[in-house]
Structure formats: C-alpha cells, structure tokens
Amino acid sequence: MKFGVVIFPGSNCDEDAYHAAKDVFGQDAEYLWHKNTDVKGADVVILPGGFAHGDYLRTGAMARFSPIMGAVRAFADRGGPVLGICNGFQILLEAGLLPGAMLRNKGLKYCCQHVYLRVERTDTPFTAAARAGQVLRIPIGHGEGNYFAPPETVEKLEANRQVILRYTDPQGQINDEWNPNGSVGAIASICNERRNVVGMMPHPERACEPLLGGVDGRLIFESIVQTLRSAESLALQPSVVGRAS
C-alpha cells in the first residue's frame, strides 16, 4: 500500500509523516507536491502539519486553492482515506471537506505540549485499531486549534458520531483544564459523514517511536494499515471480485 504525503510551500511535518509511514511501518510512501494534479496512485493521502502558504490570511485559506486539492477532493469522493494533521486539518476545514473552522487558541498562546485524547469512535480508517474510550497521549503544536462550529453543526456532528477524539484528562474525563485551546465540546478530531476523511489537531507522526517520548500515535497509522490491508485481502478473494467498488 502507498501513502501519499502532500507538501505545500510551508509544510514542515511532511518528512515526519513520510518517515512514520515508510520507516516505522514499512509501507511505500511518496511525496505529492501541491502543484500536482493527481495523487499518484496513493491508497491513503496525508495532509501534514506546518504553515501552508505561510498561513497567510487564515490557516489553510490559500492551501485550499492549491492544484493538488482538486485531486484530494476527487480521491475523497471515491471513498479514499484522507488524514489531515494539524495544518492539514485546518486545510480540510477551509476546503469544506470537513465542517467548522479554527479560531485562535483561547489563551492566545501557541500550545506545544503532550495532551490526552479519548477515542470516541473506532469506525474510521484512522481509529479502527483503537478501543472506544481508550486514552492516548500525543503531542500538539498549534496556535489556531480552537475548533468552532455553529451549535446546529456541532449537534449534527454529535448525532452522526463524527467526533473522533476529544481532549480529556489522563483518566479520559472531559475537563476544561485539559482542553488546551478552548475547542467546543473538547473536540480534537472529526470525520466527514462518509467517515473516510479525518482531521485531527494532535500529531500522531510525532509519537511513533519511544525516542520521541511516546508511541500512542502508532495506533492511528496501525489503523489505516490494517484497514487498507483488509481491503486488499478482500479484493483478492475471488468470491468478492466485482463487488468491490
């Protein structure tokens, strides 16, 4: 299986995501320059963290118009799994692939720290290997991670079970003190209605090796590897050939 890692001018976590896919998980990986108009046969696309186009105007506002985003949208429309990490999440919001917007962190400070996250849903390609209620410790690094959506949108997200991760205390309890940026509903990650597009503010690619101070981010990568592997083995079974779309 192949990971496609998009590089925008100003991306700075592209190499970390590529390293996690290629060196930690032993998968094929290829960079996708933002001017490309196709995803080069990738099975999963990652929009990495950073400051795409300098984050000028608003985070993700310019990146939304990069040529690669047309291909990413088409890939997502075909059901392809897309993960936006941090700035990648902000880009997915600006592009309208996920609902809502990011505001400045409530405390106005750039937050660079480990946070605790409760897994809310495991029926996405990026959380399939986790247990519901499991608490993960993964780092964040952002100044605009205060997730906002109008109340009716938040209600819809909750009703459709689209909230994937929430900021909690180490025991998995929601608590304002452990919500680093003021996100509504302590939301750290959401998915689209089809559940194949996921955005998350924490950086799983920074938590895949003990040397980095934690390995809980591996679950996110393990999830997509498992999901794609089972899709591949299904596709290889003669009985289901022709059924796969």
Binding site: L57, R58, A61, F65, L93, E94, P99, G100, A101, L103, F148, A149, P150
Partner: peptide, 8 residues
C-alpha cells in the same frame, strides 16, 4: 471566495 470564512 477567499477574504472571509463564512463559518466564523
């Protein structure tokens, strides 16, 4: 299209 984000 660009200058304002209608969500916020």
């Amino acid at each position: 299209k660009l200058l304002a984000n209608p969500v916020i």
